[in-house]
Design a binder for these strands. Sequence first.
DNA 1: GGAGTCATGATCACAGTTGACCGTCTCACC
DNA 2: GGTGAGACGGTCAACTGTGATCATGACTCC
Lengths: 220, 220
Amino acid sequence: MAGMTIRVLLTDDDALVRAGLALILGGSSQIEVVGEAANGHEAVERVRAGGIDVVLMDIRMPVMDGIAATEAVLALPEAPKVIVLTTFDADAYVVRALAAGANGFLLKDTPPADIVDAIARVVAGEPMLSPAITEQLIRQVTDAVPDARAGQAVERIACLTDREREVAVAVGRGASNAEIAADLHMSVATVKAHISHLFTKLDATNRVQVAIAMHEAGLL
Amino acid sequence: MAGMTIRVLLTDDDALVRAGLALILGGSSQIEVVGEAANGHEAVERVRAGGIDVVLMDIRMPVMDGIAATEAVLALPEAPKVIVLTTFDADAYVVRALAAGANGFLLKDTPPADIVDAIARVVAGEPMLSPAITEQLIRQVTDAVPDARAGQAVERIACLTDREREVAVAVGRGASNAEIAADLHMSVATVKAHISHLFTKLDATNRVQVAIAMHEAGLL
DNA sequence: GGAGTCATGATCACAGTTGACCGTCTCACC
DNA sequence: GGTGAGACGGTCAACTGTGATCATGACTCC
């Protein structure tokens, strides 16, 4: 995949918007617009045909809206990445789009260079949100109540060594010692030693309590 | 403000980290490191003295941690922007830092170029998060509303017998078989049998996974 | 009397304990 | 500036005890 061109599908009911995007993306040598769709249904069909890496998806469209189309597209085999690109930054849209699995959410006033950058980052597996969207998410998260317990759990986890923390995360996932050893390329004996240290540091008597501590701290 | 150099204060209890950051930021012509602080208290004093546009803030520090320092710094007149820069991406830290008003939250493994970019964007009034942090926020927001995983977990837990559920809850608390036997007035052998049933019913291979399922279902 | 729940002991696998070794870093101290 | 003690992180093997599986029996309730 490295160095290959990124094949993009434009989905928007407005032909002018599609043309504008095609123009913007045409300026990048790594990106190639290989298709256009005027609604969600067309987009799903085009993705099913294969050869799409990223879908730029409008939300408000006739026939099938962008949220439903995002879900449908991501359910396909060899699902591409989806970036929702819209003028509407309503809270409900953002949450629903992200819940549908969208890898990015950009507003249409995003500078051309940033759109190109976003496509590259999303292909690399990073999420990409417009600053205004990020602000929204932050507001939503911070409005929720702060958790005192979580704070304490984090305090204790902060004093773990790197290796111990890696093991702790694996324990929190429910992995066995053998699985952890394989994942982290160490012997089962070493895993056990780390876990013993975790018990004293996290004030636990068995691995379940370690797992609970990790969950409370949100390291998962 | 446009075109002027951005005056940065580095705050970290580790002198090596400060030196590394100074080196990274020294490569940018728009950025000038005008001060360093080894803890939150020093940082607040330095900001109070004036002439700081952006504070890079570690979280874990002696005397005054980064969260408290962020709040204090932002409460000052002519408050600078604050970017929290840490190795710990625990949910609780992120939420608390953002609730304290941090304008950015970066992990220390962020590429140098991105750190420089983040500083510029934050000065421009945009929030800036590491991709991993953005993912966390997205997860938190999308989990909060409908949570499909929890739904599935509840489905499976619904088909447990009363006794099995009692045992499962105890396992979720991190209790040993002996403790469960004592609590529920049954023999250790019986506890083990119930737990074996839990494994098949909850599709788990060990007790930690049972504990996770109970947590996801919210039975704790 | 068959379906379902609860209970049990014997057997085997795995989790957890202990003590040890090696490399790295720090800090005197000469 | 070399060197040696001490602390720490990471690794490991062998021992012990708890956890997990299996086969089985007693009880209740249509």
